[in-house]
Design a protein around this nucleic acid. Structure first.
Lengths: 329, 329
DNA sequence: GTGAAAGCGCTAACAT
DNA sequence: ATGTTAGCGCTTTCAC
């Protein structure tokens, strides 16, 4: 069933049906009624692929995340999806696994599909990724960071500053022997930035360089026991640890209870990334909270503004972060 | 830059470029080299929208979930995405929020986009949803259940049986005053099935009907304290509770520590849905584990088989479930 | 307000 | 192995 068949059934031209479908007000009441009847009688569903080809608008937005399985990224995807749907947009998701090459391939695939916009939870772009995006000329929103040299638009916060804030907090609480646990993937540039800020501020405060222990899986809470043991054996016995990823911190707190390690007495624990569990574990976990929903929602709003051809006033939006101090430090 | 421009640059026909792009082996080595050079020189990216229209294959699969923000659903989305990508498919996600009407709208939108297949984490379909799907004639996989009357294909397990298994386990452990906590949304038919199985088996074992307390947000662990209090005041003081959703159970276990309620001494706790935290909390949580990755992966495999026009031997796949007994019961 | 004509950029089917 | 022809089903543009 094509638009022309509906037109024939309604005794109008295909153009009238097309107009009615997109904006019923453009069609006189009489014809509108006939078209509506014909559409319903035949169960006609417009072919949006053909529409996309003809209009050069796909009404699809793509989002790239390291992994959807991590709630920290699933939430922005959900918020983006929700904010875009009322405007008729659907969301295509790609998981890069923190791999810049996969990211490049996905960007190429999405550009080939002529998506109307792309949201990137970046992974240290390859030069070609940037080139493809520039060449495609579609709106791009970088999420989770505030790049000096944005590809196009960005919604994020200052990752280095978040690490600095944590270092200052631990220092103010009297902790002097710091450690940091972070994700080892090369593509996780934002984790690196947080660590960088943490180490720099520690140095500025006259503290020794934080001991650093990388781990592989950012969501694997069972790593807690292993990492806790590592910390307890660490050179100079750290008295506070900054986990750049809340699940690891939760794992440590739960493991500490079993191992009889007093928190924060023997070891203070805090984390980047708020988590539903942070206030519930015992002791409650000090975290850096980022408005993750807002990240996705803002990205959607900026894209919609662009689609409406209104220029975006503020191409880089800082949603900020907040240090939520709880009992673990 | 269109395919014809590339063809002109390479001194071949558009068809040769098209062939080369999809299967280089179909083109002789000499021409292949020229085409490749022309493609790269011009940074040509095929327009997959036009390709989809001409071939009637979009290489897009849609998946509907209640919400992506819940890890229980995010994992199958990730697994589906991963399994489909090597075959050149991308995934469009829709969040129904457990609302059948939203589900219907999303199904209509996806069908309009001519997706090659749809995966449904169903929400008690409206009749129209079924009609749209039947009319579209595309492969459909229902996830998380084994319907008697599947729309097309299904990958799941027996939800009622999982509730029954839990009831038997609690009875065998000597618990006699059961309660069940479950999600209140009308569209959450699978939670209802688990409760039904639980209650039916309890009756068969001669136990009184389980007390039932519904809650709104399936992922809100802070509900734990409130629900724990409710249970402690419950008529006949339940000695065991089945949480149809692990986050609630985790919340209860964490709250119990603060409230000085002994688990399982004063209250046994178990849950449907395994969770990374289940083995880590104290006491470790007894759960029904479902192979969630397998759910997404199997759905992908079945769709790919269909796309390859090989008939699917087994249109309904039971991935089973497993009762993982831990210290909380 | 409505309709006719001309593509959008690709692939299927057929011919060579 | 390569080229030619004819759409895919819609929207854009322009005429009435």
């Amino acid at each position: 069933m094509r638009i022309e068949d509906v037109a024939a059934a309604a005794g109008v031209s295909a153009q009238t049906v097309s107009r009615f479908l997109r904006n019923p007000d453009l069609v006189s009441a009489g014809l509108a009624a006939r078209v509506r009847a014909a559409v319903e009688a035949n169960g006609y569903m417009p072919n949006r692929v053909a529409g996309a080809l003809a209009s050069n608008r796909s009404y699809i937005v793509a989002i790239l995340v390291p992994t959807i399985a991590n709630p920290i990224h699933a939430l922005p995807v959900q918020a983006l999806t929700d904010a875009l749907r009322p405007a008729g947009y659907q969301v295509l998701v790609g998981a890069t696994g923190y791999d810049p090459t996969t990211e490049e391939e996905l960007v190429a695939a999405f550009v080939g599909r002529r998506v109307d916009g792309i949201v990137l939870t970046g992974t240290g772009f390859t030069p070609r990724t940037r080139a493809i995006l520039a060449h495609a000329g579609i709106p791009v929103v970088q999420l989770w960071e505030l790049p000096d040299d944005p590809i196009d638009m960005a919604v994020g916060f200052d990752n280095e500053a978040s690490g600095e804030a944590v270092a200052r907090h631990l220092h103010a609480r009297g902790y002097r022997r710091l450690a940091v646990l972070s994700h080892a993937a090369a593509g996780d540039t934002r984790s690196l930035a947080r660590c960088r800020g943490f180490a720099r501020e520690a140095a500025r405060l006259g503290l020794p360089a934080p001991l650093s222990y990388p781990y592989e899986s950012p969501t694997d809470m069972t790593q807690g026991a292993r990492l806790l043991a590592l910390l307890r054996e660490g050179v100079g016995r750290p008295d506070a640890v900054f986990c750049v990823g809340a699940p690891i911190a939760i794992g440590i707190i739960l493991a500490a209870a079993g191992a009889g390690v007093a928190i924060p007495g023997e070891l203070a624990v805090c984390a980047f990334g708020d988590n539903d569990l942070a206030p519930l574990v015992s002791p409650a976990l000090t975290t850096v909270r980022v408005p993750r929903q807002e990240l996705g929602r803002q990205a959607a709003l900026m894209l919609l503004e662009r689609f409406a051809a209104r220029g975006v006033a503020e191409p880089v939006v800082d949603v900020g972060f907040e240090l939520v101090v709880r009992a673990s430090t």
